[in-house]
Each structure stands twice: as C-alpha cells, then as structure tokens.
Design a binder for these strands. Structure first.
Lengths: 356, 356
DNA sequence: TTGTAGGCGTTATCAT
DNA sequence: ATGATAACGCCTACAA
C-alpha cells in the first residue's frame, strides 16, 4: 500500500513520523513540540512528559532538512582536506569531528587528493548545503575558490598554514619556521653536506614551504642544500629511493631532512640495509612525529605539528562564532599553534633513551 | 537594512539568490529553471542559454536542503567508522568519498572512537538528515543501533566484516580466515612456540576475530598460542612492549602474529634493539600491508585487506541501489572482497627482495 | 515545452 | 505557555 490510487496530489510518499504525529499523540500543537525539542524547560511540566512519551513511542526523529530550511541555518560544517591518507589531516579531522559532534554539528567531508580544481568543486558543493561554517586546508586557493569562500555567508577557517589575508580564521603554524628549525638544529650538530627530501612539492604547498625554510636557513650558513622532490605520495619507498639517489650524486652527504616522517622512515630503512650508521655518518630528521617516530631505530628527530590541537581549536573558535549573530562582524583571527622540534637519536650521539 | 519594519511576517533573512531570482532574470518560470538544472536537454534551446546565463550572473547556488526536502531524498550518505586514526578506515573512507562525490553525493562522517553507545548516537544523527544510505563498520551493533538501522528508509551497508544477517549490503572479508591464514603460514615455516599481539581486543571486534582464527588454527596443530591483549590504540610502542612481555614469559617464542602492521613494526624495532635476528630466531607477521610494511627491515609478512576496494565497492553498490525505486525490494547482498597473505622476509629465510 | 499551485516538515511570528 | 499560520526554497503532478 505504498502508492494508493486515491489522494490526488498527495506527495506524502514517506510514511515518516513527523512532528505533527507527535503533536497529535501528545494532544498538543506542533509548535509546542518544536519548542519542547529546542528548550524542554519552556513548556509546562504538564505536557512535557506527554510530548516526551509520544516521541519515544513513535520513534520520532526530527527532520533536520526541514528544520534547517525553516531556520535558515544548517548544523553542518564542510571540511576540505587534501587527503585522508595523510595522518596529519585524518588526525585533525578526527579531532574536529569529535568536537563538532559535541555541539550537535555534522561534519561534511571532502578530499581533493591534490587535484587542481577539486577544492572549488567541493566548496561549491558544501555551499549548497548552507553550512554553518567552512574549513579548508591551507591559505593558497585558486581564484574560483576564493570567490566562493568570500561569497559564503558562513565563517571560513583555514588550517595547517598561516599567511595571506585570513577570511575569518586561520589556525596553523609557519612551515617555513619548521624548516628553519630543522636546519638550525642540523647546523648545530655539525651538518655540512645536506639534502632535503620532499614528496610532490609542486602540489603540496606546505611541504614546499618547509623545504624553502630549510634551504634558506642553510644558505645563511653558506650551505646549499640538495633538494630531492619525488613524485607520488610520501611513503617509505619514496624515502628509500631518494636516499639511493642522493648517495649516488652526493656520497658525502651528512644530513638529510624529510618533509614527512614516513619518508624519513624509509631513509632509516635504506640506511640500515646499506650499513650506514645513523646518526654517526648520516643525520636524519623528519616532520610529523608519527606514532613510529619515537619507537624506530634510531628514534627519529622530527617536528611535532599538533594536528589534534589544530582541529580542536578550529572547532572551538567556529562554535564560538556561531553563537554570535552573523551580523556582529567578528574580527578575523589568526591562531598560531606552533610546533615543537623533537630531538631524538637520529641526529644526536647521545644514548638511545627510547624507554625512558 | 536587515530588519525592515515593513513586510509583516517576512522571514526572508538571507538575501540569498533563489531559483525564483534566476527565473525572473531569465524571464521564465521557476519550474523551467528547476527542469533545466536537472536535465538541461529538456528545455527549449531558446531559453536554456538564458537560464544558464542568469545562473552565472547571479551566482546562483541551489539550496540542497530545500531540494532534498521537496524531493524527499537527500544526496547524503552517513558513514560511521571506529576511528580515522586507523589507516584502514581512512583509506576506505577516502575511496568512498571520491566515488560518492563522482555521483554527486555528500559524505557525512562520524567516528565512534570505540566508545560504546556512540554508534547509535551517530546513526540517529545521520537519520535526521534523511540520508540516501548509511554505512557502518562491522556487523556487531547494539540493540539500539540495530533498531535504528532497521527503521531506516535507506539501504544500510556494513563494511570490513562479514557475518550475521546483513541489512542490505555487506562488503568485507572473514577476519577469522585472515587469522587462520597467518597461522597456517606460521606452521608451514616451522613455528611451534607462538604468540599473538592485539590491541584493545575487547572493543576491536575484528582484531579479536583475527586472533581467534589464529588461535584456533594453532590449536588444531596442538599448539596453544600465547595471547597478548594490550590496551590502547595499536602502535609501535604497543608492539615493542608486548614483545618485551612475551620474551619474559616465553623466552623460546619463535613466531609472533600481530593484529596490525604498526604493532608488528614495533616488534621489529624492539627485536632489532635486542639483537634478535628476524626471521632466523623469530618470525613476525602483521595485518594491513601498510606503506612501510614492504620497505621495513626485514620486509614484513602481512595480510593485505583491500581497504580501498571495500570503499569503492560499497559506494558502487549503493549508487546502483539508489537508481532503483525504493519499492523494488532488492535482495540483501554479501560481497567478500577477500584478502591476500603477503609473505615477505620477516617469516622466510629467502633473500630480501625488497627492490624487485 | 512551459507555467501553476500544492506540498515537503520544520521554525518563527504573532495572537491568544 | 500554547496554538494558528506564514514562510523557508524547491520539486512535481497537472494543466495549458
């Protein structure tokens, strides 16, 4: 009895339980039910339990689409990341999702997989959901994306990078500074023949920034770093192959910085296979402080980027903004969460203290 | 001029460009615009360009909420995963998102972080979005979740596991079989004193299943496996500590299977530190075939679970189902994507062939 | 092919 | 405090 012949123009296709059904059963008006759902204290103690019971009995689930349409605000937040395969972003997304969820907001997810034009597509899609806010990765966006974001009637947060003019919120840190920090550390421990391994740096803006920071700092010391920009995702294979390449062209290399810990891990493995002692002959540093970085042999010097905090701060700042009226123009805000250089045995000769 | 005193009962808070605006500018009716948007061929070649231009000029973005409400179907699919920190699930989610996006569907993401009760909460939230379909992880759900899923007017896909009665679709493989395969392999290469390391197996159902498959197969050969169930997320630390534990209680252990490659990696590191030769003295196997598993020293024997294919198949099957009328009751379907035992040097004495 | 009008399930406004 | 009722922006059966 799904399509009854009668009832002309009845489009009530779904026999979904609606607020009216609840109202009827509780013998109140739909308005009261709506009120109760938003603020249970606002209805008299006489009818509140009736409504509550009706909801339970009927198994009523509010229709957010209708609600959002009527209220002209959707409890959804669109998030664009380059890739979920990257542990940094999946950690940030996880943290955001948890926090959004706590506030009753739904996370809409999109990944560009580093394909040009995808960001604009995803943002456009998100916009058609009338999201409460938008979160994008990085500060570099093509003109189309910028236009869409500017036209958005919702706060825009940029994450994982600082720079340019913020739309409404930026939460991240300077990747140049991270690269510089690694370079300075390398110099301090006596590195003179250095290289930087990065994956796909033409499209991975932030890896490129770390690379540039590293190179510039090295140049200040009169050292020209060899840059190994390998195609494809960052992976241990990437690192292993890159090390092979570097050794061929620069046999006396004494320090290698990597744009990612997984690359550095590959360097460690390849060095192990070749019998190159680390850090005695070659110092290695990464970026990310991934779970294995503390445990590998030797433990890896790296930069810890606070991926979770980025997600959390973004969510908190956005949740705070949504409490205000969209009218009160809130100042754009930049939050530098910083990073931490974590020095471990891969760049120092001290005893391995992995089991502190 | 946001709240003009006139225009009683005007709630038009947003000066958003609507379909009516487009229609007015193109000098056609809104329904023609609607038709054009859904099927550009269906309107006359005379007005089509007018509509197209009006859309561009006004920067019209369709309101999916209104559209979904009217059409009683939302182009959104809710996905529940245990955790995005787990590379398996983030890979599957990435694959799904890409495929959904190709079909114009939005992925709604939720993670339980292995907390009891969270699955039901997330499903309930998703349901209020009237999703086209729901995707959940695994086949074990509490009563509340089952009830919600059963009541859902949308196909329900279960992933990463097979078993029990499928709601509409299951795409996964047998984790028991995966555990058994590892056990048989270990037996073939002469393992006699074996252990299994798993993380948080009380809540990670699938890790437990792999463990059980492993243990049962060992028992058939008269061997009782020592089971190391460590708390917390799977990590190299987990593996390193577990190996230490095992060596203390079972010094003559000659084979260790792990519920996850990252645990196995930790075992390799700890063995390296202790000077335990692998595979000569100790065979090690993992699960997941993560990026480092082929590259580490020695390369790791593992089970490759086809995370991407699971996501892709789920998306494809669901997209196919949504083409049909919800009326035609489609048969529940089970897709076993299988897995592959990848034998590498960590369990064999053959020459390392990492650079094939 | 194009237009008209009713309805999708809420929320918000206003009157009681 | 509660209830009518008008939006919200679009889709779709039906008429023209």
């Amino acid at each position: 009895m799904s399509q009854t012949a009668k009832a002309p123009r009845s489009r009530r296709s779904t026999n979904r339980v609606t607020m009216d059904d609840v109202a009827a059963r509780a013998r109140v008006s739909a308005s009261s039910v709506s009120l109760f759902l938003r603020n249970p204290e606002a209805v008299s103690p006489r009818i509140a339990p009736r409504i509550k019971q009706a909801i339970d009995v009927l198994g009523y689930v509010p229709n957010l689409l209708a609600g959002s349409l009527a209220a002209a605000r959707t409890r959804a937040i669109g998030v664009v990341v380059p890739s979920l395969g990257n542990a940094f972003f999946s950690a940030t997304v996880a943290a955001m999702q948890t926090e959004f969820d706590r506030h009753g907001y739904q996370l809409l997810l999109g990944a560009t997989e580093y394909q040009p034009g995808r960001e604009a597509d995803l943002v456009r899609t998100f916009l058609s959901w009338s999201p409460t806010a938008l979160v994008v990765t990085g500060c570099r966006h093509d003109d189309e994306t910028r236009a869409l974001l500017r036209s958005a009637r919702a706060p825009v947060a940029e994450m994982w990078e600082l720079g340019d003019q913020p739309f409404d919120l930026q939460v991240g840190f300077s990747h140049y500074a991270a690269g510089e920090a690694v370079a300075r550390h390398m110099l301090e421990i006596g590195a003179r023949r250095v290289a930087f391994i990065g994956a796909r740096m033409a499209s991975d803006v932030r890896a490129r920034q770390r690379c540039e920071g590293f190179s510039r700092e090295m140049l200040k010391a009169g050292i020209e770093a060899r840059i190994e920009d390998v195609p494809g995702d960052a992976s241990p294979q990437t690192g292993a192959h890159a090390l092979a390449d570097i050794l061929q062209n620069m046999p006396d290399v004494d320090a290698i910085a990597c744009s990612n810990d997984v690359i550095a891990l590959g360097v460690l493995f390849e060095a192990q296979r070749r019998g190159i002692p680390i850090p005695q002959q070659l110092r290695v540093a990464g970026f990310g402080d991934l779970p294995f970085s503390e445990e590998c042999v030797p433990p890896l010097t790296t930069v810890q980027p606070r991926a979770n905090e980025i997600g959390l701060r973004i969510a908190q700042e956005l949740m705070e903004r949504t409490d205000h009226e969209p009218a009160d123009d809130i100042e754009p805000r930049i939050v530098d969460v910083g990073f931490e250089l974590v020095v471990r045995a891969s760049t120092s000769n001290v005893l391995t203290d992995h089991d502190a």
